[in-house]
Design a protein around this nucleic acid. Sequence first.
DNA 1: CTCTAACCGAGACGGTACGTCAGGTCTTGAC
DNA 2: GTCAAGACCTGACGTACCGTCTCGGTTAGAG
Lengths: 219, 219, 219, 219
Amino acid sequence: MNDQPAPEAAPEPGRPGRRRSEASRQAILAATSELVAEVGYANLTIEGIAARSGTGKQTIYRWWPSKADVLLDALMTKAELHIPIPDKGSYADDLRAFLTASFALGRDRRIMDIQRALMAHAQLDEDFGRRLRTEALQRRRDALAVIQGRARDRGDLPPSPSPGTAADLVFGVIWYRVLVTHQPLDQALVDELVAMLAPAANGGRRRTTSSRPRQGSNG
Amino acid sequence: MNDQPAPEAAPEPGRPGRRRSEASRQAILAATSELVAEVGYANLTIEGIAARSGTGKQTIYRWWPSKADVLLDALMTKAELHIPIPDKGSYADDLRAFLTASFALGRDRRIMDIQRALMAHAQLDEDFGRRLRTEALQRRRDALAVIQGRARDRGDLPPSPSPGTAADLVFGVIWYRVLVTHQPLDQALVDELVAMLAPAANGGRRRTTSSRPRQGSNG
Amino acid sequence: MNDQPAPEAAPEPGRPGRRRSEASRQAILAATSELVAEVGYANLTIEGIAARSGTGKQTIYRWWPSKADVLLDALMTKAELHIPIPDKGSYADDLRAFLTASFALGRDRRIMDIQRALMAHAQLDEDFGRRLRTEALQRRRDALAVIQGRARDRGDLPPSPSPGTAADLVFGVIWYRVLVTHQPLDQALVDELVAMLAPAANGGRRRTTSSRPRQGSNG
Amino acid sequence: MNDQPAPEAAPEPGRPGRRRSEASRQAILAATSELVAEVGYANLTIEGIAARSGTGKQTIYRWWPSKADVLLDALMTKAELHIPIPDKGSYADDLRAFLTASFALGRDRRIMDIQRALMAHAQLDEDFGRRLRTEALQRRRDALAVIQGRARDRGDLPPSPSPGTAADLVFGVIWYRVLVTHQPLDQALVDELVAMLAPAANGGRRRTTSSRPRQGSNG
DNA sequence: CTCTAACCGAGACGGTACGTCAGGTCTTGAC
DNA sequence: GTCAAGACCTGACGTACCGTCTCGGTTAGAG
């Protein structure tokens, strides 16, 4: 049923016929971004995208399995979802940088709405769920795993919680706030998470710029 | 737009006109439960529910704003989503009991699928999102808050993380596993969460019944 | 199915129970007249009549078989559909008076629209068709028949066309203009019909006030 | 509201997109004819037509504004509603031929029922009324006008009634019998109409086969 | 002075069909 | 072989009314 040749497929040089139109691809992704901002994901339709982009529905169906895939593609193409992971010298500082960068992404209301919609769609469409996980979510986990690997090599990765659980906690809180409570992802949360996951003996940040009161040890 | 007199509204004795049919209400909720199990949420339709329950569509639209609301009602009516919160004597033990009971709910594949679908719908329909939060999600937070209140009174509530953040962490992990990783909610996770959130000096469980090997460090 | 005790039924003295509410009857007929003028017959509904009149649907269904019957009742109650048939001394003059009076009825746009709608409904509902014929249409034929009877007695009823066909012609033209061409029923048509159906030797009107050019009589 | 590109529109060679399916069109018209014969116009529904014809409702709505239009199309496509108007040499004979042919059409019970229903719908839907008049009714008037034109040229068109009124009389009687009295359109009526409208001195039929009593001429 | 029958308003009920929307597929002629 | 265009079948939507069926509450004769 889903015989798409995978959108990222190479052009296959020796193939006859007209080549895929890059202009149409761009137009479709642009139209999708505009439309989702204007009418919201629930009112986003393939027909609307085709009309807005001046393309045919078939062209969309030929290259993407669902409207969520188009949207995911648009998001990944346009927005810089990349999380930088420079080595800050300690697990605590690496983690803090990672969290701060991750939270920044969630600050943009439009991007957050799209992420919520994609996550929602992933629950209703198993295939898309798999794609979303492998193409977007896993990359963030991988980034965190790199940080944890560095920490392990360095020797300052705490024994508990396990790295996997730590990741679940980090991403769990983020998604929970995005999906459920709609609370902002603020610096206070960064501090709490770092304190909990990287409770360095000489402890994380020495001089905090946060307004949070000194945390009198949580050990 | 949402002029529903609230399904749980009292019968209002002195009102003229035919009373709401309890038989129809039951039939609709039952049909919804059956159908969602048979065809899945994505293929659940109001028309299908009406046909299966032997009622008219209007009767459904009269009392529920959307199919997700019917499903939520069915879930809350049928399934016992109640989380008991007996006083076990310590925050650690209370928390452990709470988590164990909560995780048990997620063990039933069908209930979990429904919860995933409802959470998905909540992302696409803001009004339903509000209803889901107040009618279902908030109750669980309240239960946890009771435990935390007891701990505060008892003096064994750790200062960090804050109770609110602790709740975000707990529910965040649960939903993240349910929605994203589809990992089972197992005893190991209970232990890790308790260890992190209630790191009692005399520490959580002394004698574990868990099959998890002592974690001799994973670093 | 249609066990209505006939709206015009006598009060039947020895019957227990509450009497039919004359106030409701009036309110229903009045609401019907208003509504049909406001929204047109096609958008006239029993529910609308009930709401506007402040009565229950059942009260309408109890006394009238269809909305067309309500409307017919309203029309016959309010509008004076009676055609006077005074003896003018000759068939030609009687006929002229009859036609003039009949045409006057069709001058009111609202009454004409209602008659069109009732005639339309009669085509779709055989039972109502029978009622419309016996309660309204036949009365007009009877009035014409009285005139023709007088003429026969008087000896100035032409042998052709037969009285029945003459009636068909008269009412045929009226309804055809009302239903199809929407042409006004004017004095010129009266003259033509009289000239054709009562071509008296000493002929109808000697001095016409009509604007029609003298026509050398076609007798 | 009525943006139909007119069903009879030419195929417009250089237009992109899939062509209208002639097979669907035929199936819809055929299904409509069958259904109206089986269940009657009042129980004819667009959904029924779509189901019976194996097409989608949208395909019907795309090309016809209402079920009455579908039915009119079916009637005009299938039934030969054409009235031949050969020159018989005199107005009386032409008229007799025209009436006989017109009456024959009304003999078929099914066609008559459809015509009654269409006329009824025309009263409830002004737009359809216009279409019915221009596409069907006017054509018959035009045919009669041709006959009258020939008579005028020939010099045997009586000065009274005026041609327009004569047409009103002819079609008025026909429709009145079809819609109201349900009397058959028989030869006797033909004779009476011809006698009245074409009262040739040496006129009309010399030897009548009608059972009507000799009428001593009323001219 | 109840009893019982018929009416009344209100309004929920099981239905049917509406007209619309969008989905995903197919067809056409151009490129 | 892809493209824009657009018609096709399908299925569900949410709405409007239908005609019926409770409700609680009058209103009137008969007992």
